[in-house]
Design a binder for these strands. Structure first.
Lengths: 236, 236
DNA sequence: TTGACACAGATTGTTAACAATGCAGTATCC
DNA sequence: GGATACTGCATTGTTAACAATCTGTGTCAA
């Protein structure tokens, strides 16, 4: 563990609070929490056995990362990204993750490759077992693992945020049943990194991300149209 | 203004809260707030004429971005990045900003180039007028302006955070008097973008960032040694 | 039947008082 | 004289009560 990560742990306020944030993060990543799901304070308080303050702090942090939306006097909801946000997230991912794999390929014998191989193996196993939740979780987590290879908590945090938001985007705009990352592309990315070919690594990850992005239908009216209800009741 | 940006404004809670965050952000970027500066709740409440809750929320948001450190029962302080954090920030900047300028150069006739030119001109004027605060502010803001060219609030937010943290890092580890971005390098970056040469743009920004990074002395004991006092009193 | 209106319940937002902790200044002892 | 222990003050952390807002239900009239 690096110095910076240690510091983060030490400074970061409460373990309960962090737990709430982590749990909601995980649940979103595993698509167990759908966009627009209401996160009532009372429920969260009871679930985690903490006071309202902790819950509200956690929700504020989540909202600052685009995972949760806070609507004044109405409460907190799992975020419902707009098509424009979706564009932003994937644009950012293309840019940042390209840099991540390029650099990894460049430094070649980077540590952490073994962890990546293991990760992909777990993905295969989950696929073999048809464990949908686990497949989705590992698919997203792979990209976080790539970032982790840099031992850089800034990069890791950004990628984790973007991957999680991608999960919401796929939930809203996904067309294919299994729109998560397809089987062998993760392995190809690792191969390119190991072979020390930055260009190939970049091509692979871009191809991979575009593959996911192109499986979306951003034009389509979202599964739940947000303002429609209000408009129709004449309150808008 | 894009859809996503509008949404952010609409959802984002309080204008007062945002104001506090923005002001502290700006003050750090202009090096008016040095690392380890105490941010007492009472002072902030009086300064902005808001309740304690708003201040505490703002401080929480700032701490989640590494601008402020919250020490339990002691209060909030402007962050004091460790050498390891400094490494992380500059590593991330190299990666992300390279991508930003490369892409801009690739799409060539990107909008916003005029704004960049104007920005550099303002920098020159500030330099001519020897307005140190303005020089520092504009130097950092240039990198944010580069990010803004992508019309991507995610990228802009990340870069703004990293630039602000860089300001703290320079304040702590800077060696040269004017360790801010040197004069003509910003112009060179724009030129490379305009000429549609991604590789040159990337080289320029990397050279520029390394220039700043190399002007730091990360090995040196920080200007204010944090634990020293405690160690000497024998309480550690 | 449909729409508007009003009321009740529930949920969130805010405030203020209280508790807990850290810090500084003082006194005491070696 | 120096170091340690103690006390008072200031600041932060927490809780609980209160206020404001929204949502859903029921009633009434067109």
């Amino acid at each position: 563990m690096t110095d910076a990560q240690q510091k983060l742990d030490a400074v970061q306020s409460d373990p309960d609070e962090q737990l709430i944030v982590d749990r909601i993060y995980s649940a979103v990543m595993e698509q167990k929490l759908a966009p627009r799901t209401k996160l009532s304070e009372q429920t969260l308080c009871e679930t985690f056995g903490v006071g309202r303050m902790r819950v509200r702090r956690a929700l504020l942090l989540l909202s600052s990362q685009g995972i949760v939306e806070l609507h004044s006097n109405r409460g907190a909801f799992i975020a419902c990204p707009s098509p424009d946000e979706a564009r932003e997230v994937f644009e950012a991912r293309l840019m940042i993750e390209s840099g991540i794999v390029r650099t990894l390929a460049h430094e070649n014998g980077s540590l952490g490759i073994d962890a990546l191989r293991t990760h992909v193996k777990e993905e295969d196993e989950a696929r073999a077992a048809n464990d949908r939740t686990e497949i989705i979780r590992l698919s997203g987590e792979f990209h976080v693992e790539l970032a982790k290879c840099h031992n850089n908590s800034v990069l890791t945090r950004v990628v984790r945020e973007l991957v999680t938001r991608s999960s919401l985007i796929v939930a809203l705009f996904g067309t294919n049943r299994d729109s998560s990352c397809p089987d062998d592309e993760h392995a190809s990315i690792i191969d390119a990194i190991v072979s020390g070919d930055p260009q190939s690594a970049e091509d692979n990850i871009q191809h991979h991300l575009l593959h996911v992005k192109n499986s979306l239908d951003l034009e389509r009216t979202r599964k739940v149209e947000p303002d429609l209800a209000k408009i129709l009741t004449g309150r808008m």
